[in-house]
């Protein structure tokens, strides 16, 4: 197997982290994903684009173990991943955000971010009950990490605010914070910029680039907005009606006739 490539901006991309092999996913009669294969490499920002209903979210749900495909395999770190529950996938180092925000509305921003640390917290029930020894040390340690993420995403001022009170754009950011708190090896983002204004989109793009740059996190993201994707990503998968119609660098995609017909033509109205 080859060992990656160097991006146009000089970043080293490593070996394959996750590989989707001939994935087919059906909902009753609806074929959401039809025989799609692609890979994601270490350190890469990989985008999945396509019109509404193309099957992008479904693909992300397969990657995060939320949907089980009828055909095909998900390979993770060079091995086929056995069928597992979503929480087990999370424990393997895959974190994600949702297209429709899925935060814990009854908890504060800080507690939401701290839930991202749950996979790292191992102290037993008894230690927690008396709040001594490992439980207390672990809480402080993980709080420090959560605060690092909170600083990184510039949400210090709202850390004690109940999430239900936050505006949409900030909620998206808190959801990213919660995913980052898990120190994921692979981060899956479902339309992280949907519904944001231009300024919020710029902030979010900057955060995504910074995450990739500072933590070296491999990122797969779904986006609707072509402009954003082209700036952000190293390689792009294009989906349409459940099929893969393009796969390559942003430049390849721009010049791909099938993609232009199916997608670019529509959005460049």
């Amino acid at each position: 197997m080859d060992e990656g490539y160097t991006t146009t901006d000089g970043r080293k991309i490593g070996g394959v982290v996750m590989e989707m092999k001939n994935i087919t996913l059906r909902f009753g009669g609806v074929v959401a994903i039809k025989d799609i294969s692609f890979d994601i490499r270490e350190g890469e920002i990989r985008a999945i684009i396509g019109p509404n209903g193309a099957g992008k979210s479904s693909m992300l749900n397969v990657m995060s173990g939320f949907y089980v495909p009828q055909e095909g395999e998900v390979w993770f770190h060079g091995k086929p991943r056995p069928q597992m529950k979503p929480y087990q996938v999370a424990q393997q180092g895959i974190a994600r955000t949702f297209q429709n925000i899925a935060l814990f509305e009854g908890m504060s921003v800080l507690d939401n971010v701290m839930t991202g640390r749950l996979t790292q917290m191992k102290s037993g029930l008894f230690a927690q009950a008396i709040w001594k020894g490992k439980a207390e040390a672990e809480e402080t340690e993980n709080r420090e990490f959560a605060e690092k993420i909170i600083d990184f995403l510039e949400i210090q001022a709202i850390r004690k605010t109940p999430v239900a009170r936050l505006p949409y754009g900030l909620k998206k950011r808190v959801e990213l914070a919660r995913a980052l708190a898990a120190e994921p090896k692979l981060l899956l983002l479902d339309e992280p910029m949907a519904g944001m204004n231009v300024e919020e989109k710029e902030d979010m793009s900057r955060f995504i680039l910074d995450v990739n740059d500072e933590f070296g996190t491999t990122i797969a993201l779904i986006e609707h907005d072509m402009g954003v994707v082209m700036d952000l990503s190293d390689r792009v998968v294009v989906m349409d009606y459940g099929q893969k119609i393009g796969d390559g660098t942003p430049d390849d995609i721009r010049n791909n006739q099938a993609v232009i017909d199916a997608y670019l033509g529509v959005s460049h109205d």
Binding site: P86, Q91, D111, G116
Partner: peptide, 22 residues
């Protein structure tokens, strides 16, 4: 502590709780 956050995560949105590893 962490067990309390697991409980509250289940209470607020069980699907999201599972996705973060609960």
């Amino acid at each position: 502590g962490s067990i309390g956050r697991k409980w509250m995560a289940i209470r607020d949105m069980d699907i999201a709780a599972e996705i973060i590893g609960v």
